[in-house]
């Protein structure tokens, strides 16, 4: 086998790829926050909800965590048009990943809510704190510290998971890699460069998340 690697054709496209990385981050960001929005309701429903809302929330989580996001998006993208709803590829991906993220984030947030110890709330009540004060001073710091590390990991998971948007033609990092490699036929080189970009991207993301966690919540999160 004498294959000579030619990275120069790929490096020429670096700005284009980095632009794709930005789209990747955007997808991860949007789905993370929309998912967190769903997750808050899901967690509250699971912990404090009545019988029905508890049922609904856990069915949602069970359904979405036990089936592939890819197939969920396929359904949104190909089946909804039959019912008269046409989604763009980006919209379908965003909705699919958000619903997915919402399910996982429900579980993460729930673990945070139940981590608050009854004894600490009792102690705060005994000190004469109001409900609002208890929530702000006792519960939130505690929840933040418990869920910060799993939340950071999940964000990284979303950055990597958003690559499946490429399958629907979204031009994020992986999508642009496919575009380039079909044009220059340097597939291995292109995907190796893209792999490195993903590694750098997620290392930077973990590092900045760890830094924020340390400063804001006194969490000792590990980058590696």
């Amino acid at each position: 086998m004498d294959y000579t690697f030619q990275f120069s054709v790929v490096f020429r496209e670096l700005p284009y790829l980095l632009g794709g990385a930005l789209v990747t981050l955007q997808i991860a960001f949007i789905t993370f926050w929309c998912g967190a929005f769903i997750g808050v309701f899901g967690a509250v429903a699971k912990v404090y909800g009545g019988r029905i809302s508890r049922r609904v929330a856990s069915s949602y989580v069970t359904l979405f965590t036990n089936t592939p996001a890819l197939v969920q998006i396929y359904l949104l993208y190909y089946a909804l048009p039959d019912a008269g709803i046409l989604l763009g590829s980006m919209t379908a991906v965003l909705i699919g990943l958000t619903l997915n993220a919402g399910a996982y984030l429900t579980e993460i947030l729930r673990a945070g809510v139940i981590s608050v110890r009854r004894s600490e709330i009792d102690a705060a009540t005994a000190l004469g704190m109001s409900l609002m004060q208890i929530v702000v001073n006792v519960m939130l710091p505690h929840i933040a510290r418990t869920i910060y590390a799993p939340l950071s990991n999940f964000f990284i998971w979303l950055v990597l998971g958003s690559s499946m948007a490429a399958i629907f033609g979204v031009e994020e990092l992986t999508g642009r890699a496919i575009n380039i490699s079909t044009a220059n036929l340097r597939t291995i080189e292109t995907f190796l460069v893209v792999a490195v970009i993903y590694v750098v991207l997620t290392v930077l993301a973990s590092a900045s998340l760890a830094l924020v966690g340390r400063v804001a919540f006194r969490v000792r999160a590990r980058v590696f």
């Binding site: 086998m1 294959y3 998971g161 690559s163 992986t174 792999a195 590694v199």
Partner: peptide, 27 residues
């Protein structure tokens, strides 16, 4: 070992699939 673990946990499965495909196919 550390480098391996830290690298592969940060590459999307889809990208790994493509790389493995295009490395193994010619080899």
């Amino acid at each position: 070992g550390i480098a391996y673990v830290e690298t592969f946990r940060r590459i999307p499965f889809l990208v790994i699939l493509y790389i493995v495909l295009f490395v193994i196919e010619p080899l």
